[in-house]
Design a protein around this nucleic acid. Structure first.
Lengths: 258, 258
DNA sequence: TTTCACTGTTTTATATAATGAAACAGTGTT
DNA sequence: AACACTGTTTCATTATATAAAACAGTGAAA
C-alpha cells in the first residue's frame, strides 16, 4: 500500500480485495491484508460507503461491494454497446446448440468473459462474467490469438509460454511455444478452435472469431459442455451455428473495439 | 470539486460524469464541468486509465469507462446473489407474456433497475439496467412502496410528494400525497400495481412484489408494453404469470436484502 | 463480575501527496 | 506562419492523507 502513490490507486487496490471468493471484509483484516494502517483503511471504507460503492453489513460490521459500483459497471459502454446488442444472439445460439455459450475479448494475455447464456441442461459449465482465464488454454483464447497480427501474435505467444509462468492445467494443455503457434495456424485456416479438455478435465469447447467492420477480431464466441456428451460428429454443426451467430453479431457491433 | 475533501470522493465524482448520455470526455471539457484544474483532472483520468477503470480512445484522445469497472460491477454480490439466480425466471415470464420484464429494488425514493429481459416484439420499452426512476410514478415503485412498514411508507410518501420536487410526468401521474397513499392501500390489497401511462405516455406496466424468506419486500417484478396492445382483459393473466415468477424467485433468493 | 482480547471508530501532529499556474508539445485550421 | 485548440509535464505551495494512540463497544472466559 505504501508504495502506491496516488489515492486513486489505493482506492481501487482496496476494492480489488472484494472478490466473489471473499466478498466481505472487516477493517482490521483488510488493513492487515493490504499492509496498511487500520485507521487509514477505515477512512477509505467509510468514504466508499458514503458513496454506496461499498455497503456495510449492519450485523457483521463488515463491508461489501455496493449498488453504486453495480450501477457504474452497468454504464460501461462495453456493456451497452456490446452485451445489449449481442445477448439475443447468444441466446439463439445457446437454444440451438443446447450448451452454454460465451462471448469473450482478449485482454493482454487473458480472455475476459463479457457475457454468457447458460445451457438449459442440468450439467453445465460454471463461469463468472467479468472474470479472466488464460488465453492459451481455452478455445475462446486460441481463436483470439490466432487472428492477431503476426508480430503481435508471436510476441504474445512468446510471453505466454516462455517463462516459468506456464501452467499445464491438464495433460492436454499446450505448453510449448512451437505447438501453440502451430495450433494457432491451424485454427486460422479452419476458422474455429477446439479445446479438448485443455483447461479443465471433462470440458470441451468450440469457438469462432467475431470481427468488427474493419475486419479485426474483437471477440470470440464459444459453446462448451461436458466431454461425455460432446459428440465429435456434431462439431461441424456447432461451428456452423456459432458462425451464423458470430455473423449476426458482426452486423450489430459496427466498428466496436474492445 | 474543491469542496469535496477526500480523494475517494473526487475520484467517483469524476466517474459520475461518464453517463450513457455522455460516455466520452476530454480532459479540458471535464475539467470545466467539474470545476477543477485541467492538470488535476488529467492526473485523475491518467491514473484511472492505468487501472483500466477508464480507457482512452486513441483516435479522439477522449476517455470512457473501462473494462475494470465492468469487472468490479460484475462482482457486486447483488448481481451474483440476485441476477444470476433470477434471470432465468425473468426470461420465462417474458416468454410467456411476450412483453419486456423488469426486476427492480427500492433505493431511497427511487427504483433501481437490476435486470431486464426484453420483449421479443419489435416495439418495446427502452430502459437501462443500473439506472433509476421515480418510485411514485411507476408500477414497480408503487408496489415496493405499498409493502413498506407503515411509518416508513408515510415518511417516504411525504418526502416524495410534499416538496416542489414533484414532477407530473404525464396527466396521469399521481402528485397528491393523499391519492398516493390511497393507491398504495389498494395495491397492497390487490397484490399488484398498474401504471397506466403515469410515467410515460403510451406505456403501461403491471408489477408484483417479491418477498424474501423473512417476508419483507426486497424487489418487484414487472411486465411493460405499449398501451395500444395492452389488453385490459389480459391483466389478470399477466398478474398470474408475474406472481408465479415472483414466487419462483422468492424460493431462490433466501434471505437476500437489497 | 472482572478481565481479556478482539472488534470498529475518533483524534492528532506530522509527513506526504494533491494542487494549479505556467510552460510545453502536439494537432488541425485559417 | 500564426493561431487556437487539444493533451501533457513541471514544480513550488498548500492542503490532505497518514499512523499511533486513545477510545468505545462486544463477546468470551476465568
Amino acid at each position: 500500500m505504501q508504495q502506491l502513490k496516488s489515492s486513486v490507486h489505493k482506492t481501487f487496490a482496496i476494492l480489488e480485495y472484494f472478490t466473489p471468493q471473499k466478498p466481505e471484509w472487516g477493517v482490521t483484516e483488510l488493513a492487515i491484508a493490504v499492509g496498511s494502517n487500520k485507521s487509514t483503511v477505515y477512512r477509505f471504507l467509510s468514504d466508499l460507503c458514503k458513496l454506496d460503492i461499498l455497503t456495510k453489513n449492519p450485523n457483521s460490521d463488515k463491508y461489501a461491494l455496493g449498488l453504486k459500483l453495480f450501477e457504474l459497471g452497468s454504464r460501461v459502454s462495453l456493456k451497452s454497446a456490446f452485451v445489449e446488442k449481442t445477448h439475443p444472439e447468444l441466446e439463439s445460439v445457446a437454444k440451438d446448440i443446447t450448451e452454454t455459450v460465451h462471448i469473450a475479448v482478449l485482454k493482454k494475455d487473458q480472455i475476459f468473459y463479457v457475457d454468457k447464456v447458460e445451457s438449459p441442461q442440468g450439467l453445465k459449465i460454471s463461469s463468472q462474467i467479468g472474470s479472466y482465464n488464460p488465453a492459451y488454454a481455452t478455445a475462446l483464447g486460441k481463436v483470439l490469438l490466432s487472428y492477431l497480427p503476426e508480430n503481435q501474435q508471436k510476441e504474445t505467444a512468446k510471453k505466454l509460454l516462455r517463462s516459468d509462468a506456464v501452467t499445464a492445467y491438464t495433460k492436454n494443455t499446450i505448453t510449448k511455444q512451437k505447438n501453440l503457434l502451430k495450433a494457432l495456424d491451424e485454427i486460422k485456416q479452419n476458422g474455429y478452435a477446439i479445446d479438448r479438455e485443455e483447461y479443465e478435465l471433462g470440458l470441451i469447447c468450440v469457438a469462432v472469431p467475431i470481427f468488427n467492420q474493419e475486419g479485426n477480431v474483437v471477440a470470440s464466441l464459444s459453446a462448451s459442455g461436458p466431454a461425455n456428451r460432446f459428440e465429435e460428429k456434431e462439431v461441424t454443426r456447432y461451428v456452423t451455428t456459432l458462425k451464423k451467430g458470430a455473423n449476426a453479431i458482426q452486423n450489430k457491433i459496427g466498428y466496436f473495439k474492445p
